[in-house]
Amino acid sequence: MNIRDVAQRAGVSVATVSRVLNHPDQVTPKTRERILEIMKAMDYTPNWFARGLNLNRTGVIALLIPNIMNPIYTEIAKGVEEVAHNKGYYTLLCNSEDSKEKEAAYIEMLLHRKVDGLIFIAGHLDPDLMTRIEETRLPAVMIGKIEGNWQFSAVYTDYFEGARKATAHLIENGYSGIAHITGNLRFIESAEKLNGYREALKNADIQINPKWIIGGEETIEGGYLAAKRLVRNPNPPEAIFIANDWMAFGAIDAIKTEGFRIPEDIAVVGFDNNRMSGLVEPKLTTVNLPVYKMGLTASRLLFDEMDTLSSTSESDEKADQKQQIFLPLTIKVRNSCGHQDRIKAIFGE
């Protein structure tokens, strides 16, 4: 039994059945359902191996993330997978734990097994590996933007501006003694957040206290320890801007354990707006990083690139046209920042 038998039974062309398998989004749901049912009734399964050979395609894309425990990456994965699934593709999730060895091994494996496309997080991948991906011309999209002359489509945001806004929000609420718990400064987003924090203080003519800038591991524990060091300081800050929500949860615990109230004694602002941020007590004011949307967008850009590559005609689009999509950041005002601005809490900015 083959695809022709299915087409004959369904009274449609082989091309339509092929579209149901390869581009289900281009077939009306009604037709798609009908053909899938006929396939089921006929017990037809496409020969995936042969299909891969015929189309020079595997039906799999890969998402390489640095840390599966950080919920922002699972939300990115949700967005990526959702689009891929709609297109009839599987998503392979690779977790590098920020290890260069693991990254390299994954990239070699992915290139060797010939996935159809790759999404990776900019700034977390070794430049040599990026060059390697670029050379193979494997469709690849990066989430985030990095300096350099990389030829990748990208969806990116502005961490500097997000951090500047978060710090400025604390200043607007009357705080001047503002500390910052940074993320791992090896990563560009952490460095940009630190610069944004500095910029906001500079704009408000507030002297930067170097003792109030503390690095932490990007985990709950890392945030806990960094906050303990800050609040045990004989001169503790009035407010802390923390590089990610995960660390902020740890910091909130530490501040409470040390007997301080949030926000009355120490205000806290995080970054990411992960799903738990509205549930912790007090509810965390944070910067909304549209991670799910980043995943959706990256996946869409990847499929655009794969489609362009597979279409023989280059009439409507140049094969190497790269797309850059910017997603802005906004502040999600909740209770941990001691704000008085209810209208900002309701509407955002």
Binding site: D25, V83, N86, T297, Q324, I325, F326, L327
Partner: peptide, 29 residues
């Protein structure tokens, strides 16, 4: 979005004139 692309093709197939209302947070988006 993918669903809407199917919807739009469907409406065009049936001869309708359709104007897509879209929104986004940045010009590139």
């Amino acid at each position: 979005l993918e669903q809407w692309l199917i919807f739009i093709r469907q409406i065009k197939k049936e001869g309708g004139t359709v104007i897509a209302s879209i929104m986004a947070h940045s010009p590139s988006e």
